[in-house]
Design a binder for these strands. Structure first.
Lengths: 127, 127
DNA sequence: TTGTACTTACGAAATAATTCGTACGTTTGT
DNA sequence: ACAAACGTACGAATTATTTCGTAAGTACAA
């Protein structure tokens, strides 16, 4: 997993998500998942994945006739990039503002809140 | 401030950010700020703002010759939409996962961490 | 008055992203 | 062997976004 600053489009992100959760997949496998939510032809998916390959967002194994694609950027890295973008453009660079917005509007159950507390304590210790 | 589910493009978001921080402004005022970071002509900015007006992302006061534009969606609302989108597409619907990603990679100082703690406690009380 | 500067409106070019048709090759079942 | 099914490649149409040129109106100073 290399690759520094590529920004996937919305469609590309959908595909990456599938690859992250399913692991290496053929175009058809990806396409079948995509079909559940949207409606586009097979060659559309194929083309997208070919482009993603050129951009090195995915890599592909051409050993067998049906090429097998896998993500070439980690989900964590991409999450990081996107969260950073969001903090910079919408939260004046303040991570905690984002955090509060996220907590305010989206229910987290008690267990999750506890995890976050632990996390906060952990960060204090680091100093 | 009305308007439900419009998704601003990146350029539109830049303009909204300026409007949110400066308040109602003319095209020229906005353009002067934009010019600091990018380089595009005046009519480009104008056109963009006209389109945003059609989409009701902004509203405009045509009383004086130089029309005065202001945001027609609140920053908070937009933050909410975007955070939600992010949580749904990149964090499996879990707000706390986003929170931890945000805290993990982006320094928040001690004061901010305390604010977050207070916030967490407050949420517990609500139950 | 005349001309310079500024404004809006708007069509259309330039660019980016998505979608699809079609060609062409390989595999598989009969 | 042959057709049907399935795979890749790829040019090009479609759609979305960004950019700009030009026309036309108004204010204002010389």
């Amino acid at each position: 997993m290399n690759n520094s600053k590529v920004k996937p489009t919305a469609s590309e992100l959908e595909i990456l998500n599938i690859l992250w959760s399913k692991g290496p997949s053929t175009v058809r496998e990806i396409h079948e998942v995509l079909e559940l939510n949207k409606d586009a032809g097979y060659t559309t998916t194929l083309k997208l994945m070919q482009i993603m390959n050129e951009k090195s967002l995915v890599k592909r194994d051409e050993t067998s006739k049906s090429h097998v694609y896998s993500a070439n950027v980690s989900k964590e890295l991409m999450q990081g990039q996107m969260v950073k973008g969001m903090i910079d453009t919408m939260f004046n660079g303040s991570a905690s503002q984002l955090v509060m917005q996220a907590l305010g509007n989206h229910k987290a159950d008690a267990k999750e809140l506890d995890e976050i507390r632990k996390y906060l304590d952990l960060m204090d210790n680091k100093k």
